[in-house]
């Protein structure tokens, strides 16, 4: 089936078996191998990308169901010469060891910061009527869908907290 996607601002048209996941379409058909396959069952978060701005597990998406959608992958956030603030913070804080979960961690945290700014609550938000702040407890809960086999969680959390603080300063 023909599927049209806008990936990292570039329109792409593919001819795909309906069984193809969005993850496999990105990796095997568009050769955007930054997005990783861990479990292929929605359990690890390595495949996290943005679809129309929201984070999803691309392994549990059929590409044909996203005809016309906008997809952002790690390649669309920044480049090695021009890192996004989150990418730079992950490098600075050693937010990884083997690096396999990292693209998913960065895509997920990128979306998470927007969710906080929008006032979305989480399971650990005490007061549902108030706007949650990015505490370490909020960060852990909101990032629980991204597992790191190397357990680089300390560096990941430090990187996200620093990028969030920079974002707040820039906004002020």
């Amino acid at each position: 089936m023909r599927v049209s996607l806008t990936v990292n601002d570039t329109p792409r048209t593919l001819d795909l078996d309906p069984r193809t996941s969005l993850l496999d379409a990105l990796r095997d058909h568009l050769h955007l191998t930054g997005t990783k396959k861990g479990c292929d069952h929605g359990q690890c978060g390595a495949c996290t990308v943005l679809v129309n701005g929201e984070r999803v597990n691309s392994c549990l998406c059929l590409a044909v169901m996203h005809d016309g959608d906008e997809v952002t992958t790690i390649e669309g956030l920044g480049t090695p010469e021009n890192l996004s603030p989150l990418q730079a913070a992950f490098v600075k804080h050693d937010g990884f060891q083997c690096g396999y979960c990292t693209p998913g961690q960065i895509m997920s945290s990128h979306a998470m910061l927007k969710e906080i700014a929008r006032g979305w609550p989480s399971h650990v938000t005490e007061d549902l009527s108030a706007k949650a702040e990015l505490t370490i407890e909020e960060l852990k809960e909101r990032m629980s869908g991204n597992l790191c086999r190397c357990s680089a969680y300390k560096g990941i959390a430090d990187a996200i907290l620093e990028a969030a603080a920079e974002q707040r300063e820039a906004a002020e």
């Binding site: 984070r55 998406c61 969710e115 609550p121 989480s122 399971h123 909101r142 629980s144």
Partner: peptide, 14 residues
């Protein structure tokens, strides 16, 4: 509260 206790943000978005 029940929704926020289920799955993860990535999954709840879909």
């Amino acid at each position: 509260r029940a929704l926020l206790s289920g799955a993860t943000q990535q999954l709840r978005n879909k």
